[in-house]
Simulated scan of single mutants.
Amino acid sequence: MKVDVYVLYGGKSVEHEVSLLTALSIINALNKEKYNVYPIYITKNGIWYNKGLVRETIKDVGELKNFSTKSILKSIAEDFLKKIKANTRTVIFPALHGTNGEDGTIQGLLELLDVPYVGNGIMASAVGFDKAMTKELFSKANVPQAQYEILDYQEWIKSEKDSYVRLEEAIGYPCFVKPARLGSSVGINRCGNIEELKEAINEAFFYDIKLVIEKEIIGREMQISVIGNESPKSSVIGEFIQEKPFMDYSAKYLDGKLIPVIPARLSDEITSKMQETALKIFKLLNCNGLARVDYFVSHNDKFFVNEINTMPGFTKASMTPVLWEKTDGTSYQQLIEKLIEYAFERHEKKGTLLYDRRII
């Protein structure tokens, strides 16, 4: 019997277009002899649309989009819930990035439906998506990272000048201003003086009410992929050579000027330590399925964790699939199938738990 795979993509997120690219790759890569593939498009207004069973290759992301006049509630009920067939092996693949997809919200819905789904659960997704929360957790766990401060919108409104003074004294320049709960480098800016800091903070507060301000680390940007459930595995380390001072949205998705170097040019000792740290973080956040841990490595081979991404970019050219191909020869299609297996494995284990008090 074929497995029914429902691929969720799009969503109410500034990373909507990135999600379309991920979904296009996943849908086309899934073996139609083994899987019944159903794309579920979520518009920028949050309306769900089921495109039906896919039998042929989808050539363009434009084919993945649709328009519906239904309400959000009705669209979820009719285009998603009613379409899930009873008595079949079904798995949900949330190919969603950013808000309302990577932050624990969609995971909460899928947990209530008690259906297997690819990737991380509610807690790992919510905490991993919140840069401020992960910074605090990393600090408690002695994970090396850049010096940082957290800026809350209400604090900034009440005492803007005092906020700038605090940040200049604690962090200084150059620094980076980041929305706490956003990805794909949206809303992130490098600041070299007070004027740039003010401008960056004003922009970042359009995207979130909580910001992370980090001291700049001069170093190479590297990434490690981790996959699995209770016994996760770490990939080799990948490095990006880039023209820009940091990987903004254009550098990642539009310019095409990032050159991956895999494996990264590192000693065996630091490679091992970085892989151990990636596994430590994966377990610390109680991750499942997959995650990508991003690093800075300085000129003297000191490494600093930048962030964890609980639903990394997942096109064929994205770092996560490329890392596994270089690690053990796992193809893009094979990696997708592994993630589906992890989803079933996690769901089956959860099914053994008791939800009534045991009387001895």
Rank of each mutant, 00 (worst) to 15 (best):
N309S: 11
K215A: 13
T90C: 13
N306A: 13
A126N: 06
V7H: 02
V3K: 09
G313Y: 09
K59C: 11
F304K: 06
D152I: 14
L30R: 03
N193K: 07
D114T: 07
D268W: 01
Y173D: 12
I241P: 00
K158T: 05
L284I: 10
P321K: 02
F67Q: 09
E307Q: 07
K65L: 13
S225H: 07
G256K: 04
E276F: 00
T327W: 04
I47Q: 12
R166N: 12
I58G: 05
L285Y: 01
V18E: 05
T22V: 00
L81Q: 02
I84F: 06
K178G: 12
E78Q: 11
E168F: 00
Q333A: 13
F282C: 07
K34V: 12
E33T: 14
L151A: 14
V177W: 01
G11D: 10
A251V: 06
D130P: 06
E348R: 09
S139E: 13
L109V: 13
H97A: 11
G10D: 09
S139Y: 04
P179R: 10
K349A: 15
S71M: 08
D328R: 05
L266A: 07
V61M: 13
G183R: 06
K349L: 15
N202P: 03
F282H: 12
P312Q: 09
R292E: 12
I237V: 15
D4T: 02
K349H: 14
I281F: 06
L254E: 14
E341S: 10
S267Q: 13
G187M: 04
T134G: 05
T99Q: 12
A170I: 05
G187N: 09
G183Q: 03
D208N: 14
T88I: 10
N288F: 04
C175L: 13
I26Q: 05
Y355C: 08
V165L: 14
A77I: 05
P232D: 10
T88N: 10
T105C: 13
I224S: 00
Q275M: 07
D255K: 09
W324Q: 08
A264H: 00
A170L: 07
D268F: 03
I270G: 07
D152W: 11
K161A: 15
P245S: 08
A141Q: 11
I47N: 04
L110C: 10
P94I: 08
W324M: 06
V7D: 02
I42P: 01
E160K: 11
G172V: 09
I259G: 01
Q242W: 01
E243W: 00
I227S: 00
K65C: 08
R55L: 15
Y173I: 06
V143S: 08
N288W: 02
G128M: 02
A170F: 00
A23R: 00
I84E: 08
K70H: 06
L73F: 12
S13Q: 11
D130L: 14
V177Y: 01
L335E: 04
P232F: 07
E111Q: 13
A23E: 05
K82D: 11
T277Q: 15
A343P: 01
S234A: 15
E149R: 01
I308A: 11
K283F: 11
K233F: 01
E325C: 06
N288H: 11
E276N: 10
R346Y: 05
A23Y: 02
K280F: 06
V5I: 15
L353D: 06
L21C: 09
T320A: 12
D294Y: 08
V37W: 03
K252Q: 14
